[in-house]
Design a protein around this nucleic acid. Structure first.
Lengths: 242, 242
DNA sequence: GCCGATTTGTCCGTATGTATC
DNA sequence: CGATACATACGGACAAATCGG
């Protein structure tokens, strides 16, 4: 639901590109043409285009124009540069998600745990282990740490569904950004058991560790997601800077 | 080498943050203060701040201010959202890089190869296998495909050094963006041999496949980088959009 | 090679809206 | 309520790159 002009222009152009209204390597209409069409200012249009650039959808060339370099990709669990909950990405891909809470506990973090998660030592957190299924296949084993102070009233029942839905719609928290690190780690017995993996087959998995901040600048979540390697994909578009 | 005002402001602020001039969770000076200080316009300053936001360095809060959420990270082979050559990232981390060319060949792509790489069927490419060392430890096995048309005169000698240096400083090509996909794949015999891995230990590795475009909108490189899993790290900052 | 038209890139100033304190 | 701070949007000016005649 775009609230601003540049967001709706961005959305419209993005959709047109995905719908193949401009084919690969073709030029988009010039800025002036689009300004006329959308009836907006130059800055506003350029802002929308700028987001398409960082998405890897188009490339701008001074003096020439804006070229479409979008190619459809086979979608899977993750998408580029956005924060998306498990259920959101499942829905986007037309798959049926479900979540099983393996463990729901409350912890006070010691020094080592604090260093790992980024919270302060002594912080009170909910510690959850959750297993995410897609169409009955266990794909991700999550270790979630939520700061109690920032996420009051979290229950096992809520955690069976979408925690992000609870955060945004019940607690009215605004999630802002998430720092992520991707690594490959050796499989543990817990992984092997719940992700139904055979060590003979794969003895490691893809691990995404993330620290998530809300709009108050509070680091409220640390999560380590352990992904079945055969279903893991992570997309990214990098821009060369000066 | 910042050429523009907003780039130099970005660089200056970034450096101050990294140097701990503002400590974690502290507020930066307000926009108006910084405008005064840098003697620039509001737009220009906001542009610099915007880059710090996407870098995950700061967080902006309407009505409140700009908060520093930067934390130093242990550097390794990759960095966030930027295109960086192997040698550049080695230099940044103070390590000694070297490259060994295992294979230098010329190919005409068949349909299947074209589908994998993103080039057109029948395209003429250089195909290289290169092994990257950091301080004498083999870390990355690269399969490079360079479009001959766009990268004329590539030789084995150049490939022993920095191909990107050749592209940018000799051919005067401008690299613009790179679409990347990260996956985890099972180890092959070639990986095992050159990366000196023991299958008992790790039987998979981190694979980064990338398609890179130059400023003419030409897809000129497809590379599959196969990383030793125990040394692989990939940083990312995701921003929640509407 | 030059010139003018087109197109994107940078920068400025200003006005208005919205959230916070 | 007013002051402060960031967010959005507009309009204009000039620079730099490209292209066609």
């Amino acid at each position: 639901m775009p609230k601003t002009i540049y967001q709706s222009i961005y959305k419209d152009l993005k959709q047109k590109i995905e719908n193949d209204d401009f084919s690969y390597q073709d030029m988009l209409p010039s800025e002036n043409t689009l300004i006329q069409k959308y009836g907006c200012s130059r800055n506003t249009l350029r802002r929308a285009i700028g987001r398409l650039v960082t998405d890897g959808y188009v490339q701008t060339m001074q003096g020439k124009g804006v070229r479409n370099i979008y190619r459809p990709i086979e979608q899977t669990s993750f998408t580029i540069g956005e924060i998306e909950s498990f259920r959101e990405s499942a829905k986007r891909n037309g798959l049926r998600p479900s979540t099983h809470v393996l463990l729901f506990a409350e912890l006070i973090l010691n020094k080592k745990q604090a260093a790992n998660t980024g919270f302060a030592p002594g912080a009170e957190v909910y510690y959850l282990q959750r297993l995410h299924y897609l169409d009955d296949l266990p794909l991700i084993l999550n270790h979630n740490y939520f700061l109690k102070e920032a996420v009051p009233g979290l229950t096992k029942e809520i955690a069976e569904g979408s925690i992000y839905d609870y955060l945004e719609n019940t607690l009215h928290m605004t999630i802002v950004n998430s720092k992520r690190v991707m690594t490959v780690e050796k499989i543990t017995e817990i992984d092997e058991k719940y992700l139904e993996l055979n060590v003979e087959d794969y003895n490691c998995l893809a691990v995404v560790s993330s620290q998530t901040y809300n709009s108050n600048g509070v680091l409220f979540e640390y999560t380590q997601s352990r992904h079945r390697p055969d279903y893991f994909r992570f997309y990214d578009n990098a821009v060369r800077k000066i």
